[in-house]
């Protein structure tokens, strides 16, 4: 059908070949839409269709990040990481453990809430440190990997850090560990909590020697145990 019309259009155009300019122009115009389809008298622009396709593709990215309320089925006691030996110094675990909470913004903001609730801020302040070492710098006495931070919370560390084994549910320890790492910018920026009423490091500070005023160096609590 379409082929037939197209041929007819060509024939029409051919007829007008020797006519004046205006007639020829009309003939060509007629052909252009006859080619598209036999019926509509208005040429169809492909632009709106393209925009619709792009928009629907873009909409695919609009899934909301899920927040899990029930972290583990009741009765299932799981500790994803349990290392009983204390390893003072820069201990690096054999297997790099990935923290699932670090990929989930609601989990990290929960970690931020729990950091206050379980009174981590009592010693570490809002990352600036006080009784305990600062958490927003790049000095990690016991390692900066998620597994190291997890172990520090669960097992405790010498010189004051208590053990929270059995006191904090496993999934919440991971959330807190994720938040602690986000304090020094070790977590992806779009996941880390942004609304803060207190000081916060956004990126890992560059390796520079900080200028300490005379007499005050690294706080006693942040020193490496000898």
């Amino acid at each position: 059908m379409r082929e037939k019309t197209r041929r007819k259009g060509r024939v029409d155009a051919g007829k007008n070949r020797r006519g004046d300019a205006a007639t020829r122009g009309r003939g060509e115009e007629e052909r252009s839409y006859l080619v598209l389809s036999p019926r509509p008298r208005v040429p169809v622009s492909p632009r709106p269709f393209l925009i619709c396709v792009i928009a629907s593709v873009l909409l695919l990215s609009c899934t909301r990040e899920r927040r899990e309320f029930r972290q583990a089925p009741p009765g299932a006691r799981t500790e994803t990481l349990s290392q009983s030996d204390l390893h003072p110094g820069g201990y690096i675990p054999a297997v790099q453990t990935k923290n699932p909470a670090e990929e989930n913004a609601p989990a990290l903001s929960e970690g931020k809430r729990l950091y206050e609730w379980y009174n981590c801020s009592g010693c570490h302040s809002h990352g600036g440190g006080g009784i305990g070492p600062a958490l927003m710098d790049n000095k990690w006495i016991y390692g900066s990997d998620p597994a190291n931070v997890y172990e520090t919370i669960v097992e405790g560390r010498p010189n004051g850090m208590p053990s929270f084994r059995g006191k904090i549910p496993d999934y919440q320890v991971w959330e807190i560990a994720g938040y602690v790492r986000s304090l020094s910018g070790l977590v992806r920026r779009d996941v880390a909590p942004v609304r803060d009423d207190h000081m916060r490091a956004t990126e890992a500070p560059a390796e520079t020697t900080p200028e300490h005023p005379k007499g005050t160096g690294v706080p006693k609590s942040a020193e490496r145990p000898q």
């Binding site: 309320f69 029930r70 972290q71 583990a72 009741p74 009765g75 299932a76 006691r77 809430r113 609730w117 549910p169 999934y171 919440q172």
Partner: peptide
């Protein structure tokens, strides 16, 4: 006590196994 999240989802009490 065991699973408050199935009763009041989103509340701040963790499950207790």
């Amino acid at each position: 006590v065991v699973d408050s999240q199935s009763i009041k989802p989103g509340n701040h009490m963790p499950p207790n196994s």
